[in-house]
């Protein structure tokens, strides 16, 4: 177990390092100069040179990469070229939008998916099951950014219940801030819920077929009690696995949905930083995302290996 965790840790470090090299190299090749971006069309060569020196862009690429990597080892993500502020601060500022957004959509999707999955499993082959399967099939097919636009159309443009975009900040109060996150979270949650409902249903039906459940049924335990008391706890592992894996897709989806709602989240920061050629910010954010995704994958693997010894025992 320890060896396994250690191996994953090493893999994680290697992947993160490779990711940072790839991003750095990519941005080196991208046409565009952050100093020119900052100073615009009337900038003179000497001012550009002065700003580049200020930004530390006058050093050769390898030196800049090493300086950045060195800072990273000391826990310093560097300073943004555009905003002239520490990347860690920028990320922290944006995380208070993206993290609640991701959590909210996660809560929404599980809160919808597990009851739906239960319903489908309980009514297997009947109307309720078909309705859930139909929702699952259609929900997966809806691109989240289109859902986002439709939600704006109905709830902002039509009913005026929620803002069409923007984020007032948490200091404006919990409700105004939450209000700005509800539609984006819903846009992300609907496809997630569709996937999760299906996984829940499948996992429940799988566990219902297992021996201890059959035994419980034979002992006279009611169908509902079996479903909730025995099958559901057993089904949660696969559901959690998929949930973990979906988390990384949620991050990607958030990039687009944050753009639809112009939310000042991590995804939008990254998107804008690419536009501004702010290498330091792009590297920092991509690295964090990459580490996050790899970490979640590793955790899911470890959890599966630890919780479910059956495959190995069987083979």
């Amino acid at each position: 177990m320890l060896a396994f965790a250690l191996r994953r840790g090493l893999t994680l470090a290697l992947t993160a390092w490779l990711a940072s090299v790839v991003v750095f190299a990519a941005l080196e090749l991208v046409p565009g100069d952050p100093a020119l971006m900052m100073l615009g069309v009337n900038a003179q060569p000497d001012t550009l040179a002065a700003l580049r020196a200020q930004m530390g862009l006058d050093a050769p690429p390898l030196d800049r990469y090493l300086r950045w990597a060195g800072g990273l080892l000391r826990g310093d993500l560097g300073t943004s070229l555009t905003y002239a502020r520490p990347v860690a601060d920028l990320v922290a500022e944006r995380l208070v939008v993206t993290l609640p957004l991701a959590l909210l959509s996660l809560v929404m999707s599980t809160a919808a998916a597990i009851p739906l999955g239960l319903l489908a499993a309980a009514r297997r082959g009947r109307g309720g099951d078909w309705a859930v399967l139909g929702f699952a099939q259609i929900g997966v097919a809806l691109p989240s950014f289109w859902i986002a636009i439709l939600l704006i159309l109905v709830f902002s443009v039509g009913l005026g219940w929620f803002p069409a975009g923007g984020f007032p900040g948490w200091e404006a109060g919990v409700w105004p801030a939450l209000r700005a996150l509800i539609l984006p979270a819903l846009a992300l949650a609907i496809p997630e819920a569709a996937i999760l409902a299906r996984v829940t249903r499948t996992a429940l039906l799988d566990t219902l077929g297992e021996d201890h459940i059959r035994t419980a049924r034979a002992k006279g335990v009611g169908r509902a009690a079996v479903l909730l008391g025995h099958a559901l706890p057993n089904a949660l592992l696969p559901v959690a696995t998929v949930l973990g894996l979906q988390l990384s897709f949620l991050v990607a989806g958030a990039v687009v949905v944050e753009n639809v709602f112009t939310l000042p989240g991590l995804g939008r920061l990254l998107y804008q930083a690419i536009g501004q050629r702010d290498v330091i910010v792009v590297q920092g954010v991509v690295l964090l995302l990459a580490v996050f995704v790899v970490l979640v994958n590793a955790l899911v693997d470890i959890a599966c290996a630890a919780a479910d010894p059956r495959p190995r025992a069987l083979s």
């Binding site: 902002s156 443009v157 005026g160 803002p163 069409a164 975009g165 923007g166 639809v260 709602f261 112009t262």
Partner: peptide, 18 residues
């Protein structure tokens, strides 16, 4: 000064008095 780049959000913000 509020920064709203999206046209639909601009219209909505004006109508809502934001």
């Amino acid at each position: 000064f509020r920064f709203i780049s999206d046209a639909a959000a601009q219209i909505a913000a004006l109508k809502a008095g934001d």
